[in-house]
Amino acid sequence: MGTKRTTVDVFWRLLLLLWAITIVFPILWILYESLKTNKEFFADIWALPQSLHWENYTKAWTSYKLGSAFLNTLYYVGASLLLGTFLVTLNAYALTRLQFRGRKLIWSVIMLSLFLPGINALIPQYVLMRELHLTNSLTGLIILDSFGESVFFLLLLGGFLQSLPKELEESAFMDGASLFQVFWRIIVPLSTPGIVTVAIFKFLNLYNNFLQPFIYLSDPKKHTIGVNMYHANQKMQYSTDWVTLFAGVTIAMIPSILIYIVFQKRIAEGATLGTVKG
């Protein structure tokens, strides 16, 4: 486009830059503050560190017990991600490509979830989980988060599955393949891009999940990174170890940053589909 640049453009570009700065600056600030000493930080909150104090990171790792929190998060996020993604793919395949009695009814029951705000169910859900002895357990959380319906994921995968030609399955059935084989050997490989997008969003949802781990995990040994960072911040009222907290927040941010850098395109594509996420 050969549009000419005027002084108004300078203004627009400055506004864009300003918004960009509100995002980049606080994050950079935390990064470089996390490498100072508390003394340096208290003296001047803008100055760059004189030397890089990486030991803040080891201190954050040990004093906020991020090691065990990291393992807990890995178990909770990893297992829910694998199990949940597998189940939703299987579910989406059956619900979008197979004809069976009750399919329509199941769809309308699932669609009902769009009208449920969820917040009013928090308490009965907790009581239910307690009766099933699934509270204060990472495995319990995995079960809660893996078995369920998500309209967003079903539609996202459904769109992919519907674009696959029907002949693929038919010729496989002719060759005597079972449904399980067709699903595993044909459907899964062909819909990998969709499955990966689902997995990325599942990862973000699980890693960023604060409320459920906060409600359900009472034993500090089972806490996830997010819950531990929450408690670390609460303790700040009594201690004034800022630089260690900065290091801890940075550590908590790293997985999100990595995932975003690697999958940025897919996340943006998935987000445009996100408007169905009630």
Partner: peptide, 11 residues
């Protein structure tokens, strides 16, 4: 499994 989980943990 998904439907059961949904009925049990959500509905």
């Amino acid at each position: 499994p998904c439907l059961f989980g949904y009925l049990l943990f959500t509905l």
